[in-house]
Design a protein around this nucleic acid. Structure first.
Length: 932
DNA sequence: GCGAATGA
DNA sequence: TCATTCGC
């Protein structure tokens, strides 16, 4: 219901908006939003959004958008300190002032800026003048404006959180004051934003009581003797000041006298002009609001970023293959490779010579899926033109009921192209509607599918098999890159020998190129059957999150903090002074200069190392060392886990990590925001830490992890008899290795021998070099090399496998895992010995670790799709490389655990079982520690 | 060795 | 950016 209806007005009101205040509020309500050239648009967007909504809801006739006029006004003359505490207006806001003024005028609204006159005074003057003939509704929240309230003057604040309509009666009710007293009231209590101190010691509550007896400043002064002694004391020094303050808090009613009502009459909005303005500033999310007010021509326009028309440019780099040929010519495009799934055929190569046939697509803005061409059975490309917002419903507060989706307008613009169409659409309508539309497509090409699934707008209704994820494809083709964002992929178009005028068109071209290369590298099955379906599993896990025990976290943090305080004191005492213990530099200075300890090594950057290893060597030389080691441990615990985790929990106490599928060169997943894959497990505090991760009420956590999965993979790949036998007989692998290595029966392996064998086994898995091994085993480099030599002479078959991997890498330039995942290792050809060794270790490490990653990914997919686990209501919540964590209703926990272990054990990568059994340990508990 | 996070 | 430390 409109405001004028709520007030029951019969005469058309005059609306006066405190524009300056709204601009400020808008600017700070939303951080960073900008046009593609970097021009800030956050305040412009919100102000325009407010005005559009206002016009639509209120259907006003008279309206004024009032801004502060330039120059000093009477207040500065009266009181030089007036607003002296205001810092300079931020530059990004200044830049937006002119566009905002332009927006107001474009919408057909009156803009009022009177020199030497603040917006408030202008509003007060106009209100005082027009309230005699019609209602006045002041749109604003500034408390100074309350003095304008009257039988016929109202205040309305559309509000950040909640809108508020204030009438005279409500004002009286709330304050017990009359509007005419408001300036007096403010003069006493002060106003920090205007730098008016008021009378010290008098707050709103005291002031209200005083005003009940003495309704004006004059009355207070005249009855000074009658005031309570305490009040007398407070007022004594300010009896004159408060009158000065009142001249500041009193709004002038003598301004803007040349304005007539006609100035405020609203002109009809010009839909096309407004739409052009919005496009200029890339505020396309508002187009639909304009369309609701006035007709907007369905305009086919060139890109907003003033590029020359597409046809003016040479279409593609000559001589390079352009993928567009025929792609967009209806009805069929036989030369192009149909992307992903559904009977795709081998593509034709040899696209050279067609470079000039780039078909340039016309761009069209649409806000409704009904304006998009039918895509059933066709391929479509969807390219979000901004960052997608994850979980939009719990982001920032919004003005005027904005959803966060609207608040970040560029985020919900998606460029759409449908195979065979001569258009590319800039879609700014409902994402849910677009998702529904995409459901009918044969294939949906997008740069980042998980980002779409995560915004919860119905994208999960598009079957996994219909997606083509450009980032994923690029990752599978070359997992070494750090960045598979659309920004980067589109910037690399030249490198991929692909060209297109528009984003969605480019997505098509890239998809075709990637598909061709995936087929060439035999990666299509891996993508379609594992990685692509896994996206949905990861999105689900992220959304579900893991429950934490907030109370346990808090208690833990308190204890750790107390210990840290104690250690800090002890360290300062032992060190003979205070310093920043967290600073490696200051710590080094203390240890090696002030205390004269001997440095035990340097860091990569040449600084003296203060690492744990060094400190441990120094232990016993000075009492601070132990204290510092303990401090480090606790500080790590506090800063990395205890402090941040509870803050990341949602209202249900659950933490939602992000699983990155495109992060590692070997094929493993990574976790971030927060990283839940490095929660402490060992050490003094590991168990307690993990116990803080719990199942929700009525549920248990089920943890299942592969035992020695990398070494089992290694046994399978190398067929080394020592390893095969050990695993087939379910023996302790490190003891078995030690037994062979040191020529002693398994039963007589010493704990030292076992530990050495374990270290080298580990080293193999992680691609450790002799240097690292020496460090780890605390032996010399020569000894380490000899040790490795001995190891390989005892495990001949393993050695042969390593050599084979190396030869393979040298021959092809890449290595592959059990199911054909690839990693390029070009440095294996390097003349640099160091580089070559590094590449060799990477090659081997990738085969082992990558194959293990394949196995657990397959297990994850099976787990997520398993009907039995579904009926048991078991939900995957975490993956930690070789471990899966489920949350299951207590009564089903045991069954789910057994089922999960079965699934994990039964993984057959590439269709056949490994030559050694996969062993899985599992547990059940309320917390992660107990379950593990 | 890798990936993530923290703090100077 | 570097140094450090957690997990696997």
């Amino acid at each position: 219901m409109s405001v004028k209806e709520r007030l029951g007005l019969t005469t058309e009101p005059l609306y006066l908006m405190d524009g300056s205040a709204f601009i400020f509020r808008a600017f700070y309500a939303m951080q960073s939003m900008q046009r593609s050239d970097g021009f800030p648009t956050n305040a412009l967007f919100i102000v325009t959004r407010i005005l559009l909504k206002f016009l639509k809801d209120e259907q006003p006739t008279y309206f004024g958008f009032i801004l502060d006029g330039k120059g000093k006004n009477f207040r500065h003359e009266t009181y030089p300190e007036y607003k002296a505490n205001r810092s300079a207006t931020p530059e990004p806001l200044v830049q937006q002032l002119d566009p905002i003024k332009q927006a107001v005028r474009t919408l057909g609204l009156h803009l009022e800026i009177s020199d030497n006159c603040e917006a408030d005074d202008c509003i007060a003057s106009l209100a005082a003048r027009y309230k005699k003939e019609r209602p006045v509704i002041i749109i604003g929240a500034d408390k100074d404006l309350k003095q304008c309230l009257d039988e016929n003057v109202f205040m309305w604040d559309p509000g950040v959180k909640q809108e508020k309509l204030t009438t005279l009666a409500e004002f009286r009710e709330e304050t017990g004051l009359e509007p005419s007293q408001w300036a007096d009231f403010q003069a006493i209590i002060g106003d920090s934003s205007d730098n008016i101190p008021g009378v010290p010691g008098i707050g709103p509550k005291t002031a209200e009581k005083i005003f009940a007896d003495y309704p004006t400043l004059e009355a207070i002064r005249d009855n000074f003797d009658a005031l309570a002694p305490t009040l007398q004391k407070k007022f004594a020094d300010h009896l004159e000041n408060m009158f000065t303050f009142r001249t500041l808090t009193t709004l002038s009613t003598a301004q803007c006298d040349s304005l007539t009502l006609d100035h405020f009459r609203i002109d009809p909005i010009d839909g096309d002009k407004t739409a052009d303005f919005l496009r200029e500033y890339e505020l396309r999310a508002l187009l639909k609001d304009v369309a609701a007010l006035a007709p907007v021509s369905a305009k086919v326009n060139t890109p907003a970023t003033a590029k020359p028309a597409a046809s003016d440019k040479p279409a593609a780099k000559s001589g390079t293959g352009s993928m567009q040929l025929g792609l967009f010519d209806a009805p069929a495009a036989p030369a192009a490779a149909p992307v992903a799934g559904h009977g795709s055929h081998a593509p034709e190569h040899g696209t050279n010579g067609n470079a000039n046939r780039t078909s340039s697509l016309k761009l069209e803005d649409v806000t409704d899926v009904s304006a998009l061409p039918d895509c059933s059975g066709k391929r479509i490309a969807l390219v979000p033109m901004g960052e997608m917002l994850k979980r939009p419903e719990c982001t920032m507060p919004s003005l005027l009921d904005m959803t966060a989706e609207e608040a970040k307008p560029e985020a919900c613009i998606i460029n759409v192209h449908v195979e065979g169409s001569d258009r590319e659409y800039r879609y700014s309508g409902s994402l849910t509607a677009l998702a529904g539309y995409a459901t009918t497509a044969d294939t949906v090409i997008a740069p980042d599918v998980k980002a779409l699934l995560s915004i919860k707008s119905g994208w999960r209704s598009v079957e996994s098999s219909r997606w083509f994820d450009l980032g994923l494809a690029a990752y599978l083709l070359d997992p070494e890159d750090r960045d598979y964002s659309w920004r980067r992929l589109s910037a690399r178009a030249d490198e991929f020998e692909v060209a297109a005028e528009n984003p969605a068109q480019l997505a098509f071209a890239l998809a075709d190129d990637f598909m061709r290369r995936l087929q060439g590298a035999d990666l299509v099955t891996l993508m379609r059957e594992l990685e692509l379906p896994l996206i949905r599993v990861l999105a689900d896990m992220e959304e579900i999150g893991i429950h934490i025990d907030g109370t346990a976290f808090t208690a833990f943090l308190t204890e750790v903090q107390r210990e840290l305080d104690r250690l800090t004191k002890a360290i300062y005492e032992a060190a003979g002074g205070s310093f920043n213990i967290r600073s490696a530099q200051q710590l080094g200075d203390l240890l090696f200069n002030k205390l004269g300890l001997k440095p035990k090594g340097k860091t990569k950057g040449g600084q003296i190392s203060t690492s744990q290893a060094v400190l441990e060597k120094l232990a016993g030389e000075h009492e601070v060392i132990d204290l510092i080691l303990e401090y480090r441990t606790l500080e790590k615990l506090r800063s990395t886990y205890l402090e941040p985790m509870p803050r990341l929990a949602d209202a249900q106490g659950r933490i939602h990590t992000t699983f990155n599928q495109l992060a590692t060169a070997t094929g493993r997943l990574s976790s971030s925001n927060p990283n839940l894959q490095n929660i402490p497990v060992r050490g003094q505090f590991g168990p307690r830490m993990r116990a803080c991760f719990t199942a929700r009420k009525g549920c248990k956590l089920v943890s299942a992890d592969y035992s020695q999965i990398e070494l089992r993979v290694l046994a399978h790949c190398s067929q080394d008899p020592t390893l095969l036998e050990a695993f087939r007989n379910d023996q302790d692998i490190h003891s078995s290795t030690a037994s062979v290595l040191f020529d002693v029966p398994t039963t007589e392996v010493s704990s030292d021998q076992r530990r050495n064998a374990k270290t080298i086994n580990f080293g193999l898995v992680y691609g450790m070099g002799p240097q690292k091994l020496a460090q780890e085993l605390k032996i010399s480099l020569t000894e380490a090399k000899e040790f490795i030599e001995r190891y390989f002479s005892k495990l001949q078959q393993l050695k042969a496998f390593y050599e084979q991997v190396e030869a393979n890498a040298k021959e092809h330039g890449y290595v592959t895992t059990l199911i054909g995942r690839r990693r390029n290792v070009p440095e294996i050809q390097s003349g640099n010995n160091q580089m070559q060794s590094q590449a060799r270790r990477q090659a081997i490490n990738t085969v082992i670790q990558g194959s293990a990653a394949d196995i657990i990914k397959i297990a994850m997919l099976r787990t997520a799709q398993d009907a039995e686990l579904k009926t048991l209501k078991a939900r995957l919540v975490l993956q930690v490389h070789d471990e899966l964590l489920l949350e299951v209703p207590t009564e089903n926990a045991e069954a789910a655990a057994r089922r999960l272990a079965d699934i994990m054990t039964g993984v057959h990568p590439g269709g056949t079982a490994l030559d050694v059994p996969l062993k899985v340990d599992y547990g059940i508990g309320d917390g992660w520690h107990e379950a593990h």
